[in-house]
């Protein structure tokens, strides 16, 4: 089992290495370089030379990759061109904001999705299932920019309960941020919860139809005891990976929602830095988002390994 974990870990590192290569090469083969694309029409003479010097673009590509990669490992992403500051300083508050948004959505969305999924499965084809499933399908199919806009229209403009868009400086404190995130969280959670609840529902239904649940019923196990002991542990195991992907998607920035609500998170930073042609930031974001996906999937794998008896006993059994 330890070997298995080690293997997954090494594979994760290799994935990150490949992603870093691809982002670096991608930026490299774009016509021009970071300086010409940022300076645009002013890309000549002294300004260009100064920029090239500052970014160290005058050394060969492979050397630049090595020094960039070495710095990244130490947590230094270099300079942002548009903000004229350390990328770390740009990223810091953005990461924090995205974390706040994502955590709120996770704390509300995941338990809700589990509960709704289980309810719809256990009351399959009955009223609770029909109502919840219909609502879920609606909130799944309405694109988030529409649901977000509708939320702003109803809650912020008509009812005037909450601010419609987030107009706070990037580095506000947590408590100042809180009222601003309610609407974005609702907009995100609607889609996420609906997706996950449907997944949990089908997984629970599948387990409920299995031979061992029929056996548990015929053994005389009381209904709720059967649900908690025999159904859920087996039904929720495959859900772990879906939950992990959802969390990674949230942390990576929910671009559309962030743009609609003007929320200063990672997703908007991606859009901003691309439209500003700020290639060092794009590069840094690429590697950060990849790290989030890889590490969350690694954690999900660990959890599955620990909870699935088949995998747990794989290596220890002689």
């Amino acid at each position: 089992m330890f070997f298995l974990i080690f293997k997954r870990f090494v594979l994760g590192l290799i994935t990150l290495f490949i992603v870093s290569l691809i982002t670096f090469i991608g930026v490299e083969i774009l016509p021009g370089d970071a300086c010409t694309s940022y300076l645009e029409r002013e890309a000549f003479g002294e300004a260009l030379a100064a920029c090239i010097k500052r970014l160290g673009l005058d050394v060969p590509a492979h050397e630049r990759y090595l020094s960039w990669a070495f710095n990244v490992i130490q947590g230094d992403f270099g300079y942002s061109l548009s903000g004229q500051m350390q990328i770390n300083e740009v990223l810091g508050p953005r990461v924090k904001n995205s974390l706040v948004l994502a955590s709120a959505a996770i704390i509300i969305g995941i338990p809700l999705a589990l509960i709704l999924g289980i309810i719809t499965a256990l009351w399959r084809d009955k009223m609770p299932d029909i109502i919840i499933s219909t609502v879920a399908i609606f909130s799944m199919t309405i694109p988030e920019f529409i649901s977000a806009t509708l939320l702003i229209l109803i809650v912020a403009i008509w009812l005037e309960w909450l601010p419609g868009i987030v107009i706070v400086p990037t580095d506000v404190t947590f408590f100042e941020l809180l009222p601003n995130i309610i609407l974005p969280v609702i907009a995100i959670a609607m889609i996420m919860t609906a997706h996950m609840a449907r997944m949990v529902r089908s997984s629970v239904i599948q387990v409920m139809a299995s031979d061992y649940i029929q056996m548990a019923i015929l053994k005389g196990v009381p209904y709720w005891k059967m649900v908690f002991k025999h159904v859920l542990p087996n039904a929720l195991l495959p859900a772990i990976n879906v939950v992990a992907l959802t969390i990674a998607w949230l942390l990576g920035g929910v671009v559309v929602t962030e743009v609609v609500f003007n929320y200063p998170g990672l997703g908007r930073l991606v859009i901003e830095s691309i439209s500003n042609r700020d290639l060092p930031v794009v590069q840094a974001l690429g590697i950060i988002l990849a790290s989030i996906y890889v590490s969350i999937n690694f954690i999900a794998d660990l959890l599955t390994l620990m909870l699935n008896p088949r995998l747990k006993t794989l290596q220890t059994r002689k």
Binding site: D211, M215, H230
Partner: peptide
Amino acid sequence: GRKIAMIPQNAGQALTPN
């Protein structure tokens, strides 16, 4: 289970895996 008990066809699938 107390008065009437069942022995299933495929015990491999009728025992709860976890």
